[in-house]
């Protein structure tokens, strides 16, 4: 219970911190929402009136606390460029981005952990060299490139999905999921390769620890030592690596969303930053912060379950 409360507190702190940083960033970056709203024909007087209307002429902190006040009372504000409540615009994108990130994460976790262990236990085999090369190749391909290749192969040649025609969950769930699936794969490929590599190398160095050698020299089966002790210890850094990956996935989706035409949060975020649509950016950033803390908490909890020492440590 205490733990949960503490975590909730941390969540709150992070969200406030990131929203403040974002607000500050907009203060420093040049670009005025009133200018983007009124376009190239506006006169100085019109701009001034609009700034006043939007409260942009208020001091920085006043504006921030106003926003924060709105946030805590459930009022996320109105988008500048669309002139609609932010939540109406963001909610559908959030679902899509969640699907994309989670699917990608599941792919990463489900493929890379067994593959990493397998690749360790077969080290030295005739195909080991080939596997390493392949793994390295996967790591080196930027997702936008895979996105285009996939659209070509699976979209245009094999017609498994129709690039550029994301129908939305309401009208065609299966087709939407196919889009998201291919996006998730593009996102996952380099990360799978990285996780495999991460896992493999931690296992390798763990296997060379004295305790493992002792255990094996005492006649324990190499395999059971691997499964029982080594993996457990290697998992720690892999879990934090995966936690970090999960945290980054939502933001990283943008490029794939653009190429495959998936209307997710990443695209919306970049467009809103360009239009200086603060209310939208603030909301998305807070959602991202929530997500990051959640991923971090999950990783910590799993690690503590694996290695109770970490838990004792955090109490001291």
């Amino acid at each position: 219970m205490k733990y949960v409360l503490k975590r909730l507190g941390l969540l709150l702190v992070t969200m406030i911190l990131v929203s403040f940083l974002t607000f500050l960033a907009f203060q420093l970056v040049s670009g005025d929402p009133a200018v983007t709203m009124l376009g190239t024909d506006a006169t100085a007087a019109q701009l001034q009136t609009l700034r006043h209307e939007l409260g942009l002429d208020l001091p920085f902190l006043t504006r921030y606390f106003r926003w924060l006040g709105g946030f805590f009372t459930g009022n996320l504000g109105v988008s500048y460029s669309y002139r609609q409540p932010v939540w109406n615009l963001v909610s559908s994108k959030l679902t899509i981005s969640l699907c994309l990130s989670l699917m990608s994460f599941v792919l990463i976790a489900v493929i890379s952990i067994p593959a990493g262990i397998f690749s360790y236990s077969r080290t030295g085999g005739p195909l080991s060299w080939l596997r390493t090369v392949f793994n390295q190749l996967c790591m080196a391909v930027p997702p936008f490139f895979t996105g285009i290749l996939f659209s070509w192969c699976f979209g245009i040649l094999l017609k498994i999905f129709t690039p550029g025609d994301f129908p939305g969950f309401d009208s065609d769930f299966a087709e939407s999921m196919r889009h998201i699936f291919f996006g998730a794969v593009c996102l996952a490929i380099p990360r799978i390769a990285m996780t495999i590599r991460m896992l493999r190398s931690t296992v390798v160095s763990e296997m060379n620890k004295a305790y493992v050698r002792t255990a094996i020299s005492r006649g324990n089966d190499r395999r059971s030592v691997l499964m029982r002790h080594v993996l457990k210890n290697s998992m720690l850094s892999v879990v934090s690596f995966l936690g970090q990956t999960l945290a980054e996935l939502v933001g990283a989706g943008i490029v794939v969303e653009q190429v495959l035409g998936i209307p997710g949060l990443g695209r919306f975020l970049v467009a809103s930053i360009s239009h200086r649509d603060y209310p939208v950016v603030q909301t998305i950033v807070v959602i991202l912060a929530f997500w990051v803390v959640l991923a971090g908490t999950a990783a910590d909890l799993i690690n503590q379950a694996i290695d109770p020492r970490l838990r004792q440590g955090s109490r001291s």
């Binding site: 550029g164 190429v259 035409g261």
Partner: peptide, 19 residues
């Protein structure tokens, strides 16, 4: 009207029959 900011995305959309 479909919004696809990416130049390649538009071409792929045309090729796939979506646009």
């Amino acid at each position: 009207f479909r919004i696809l900011e990416n130049a390649e995305g538009l071409v792929l959309g045309l090729q796939s029959g979506a646009l």
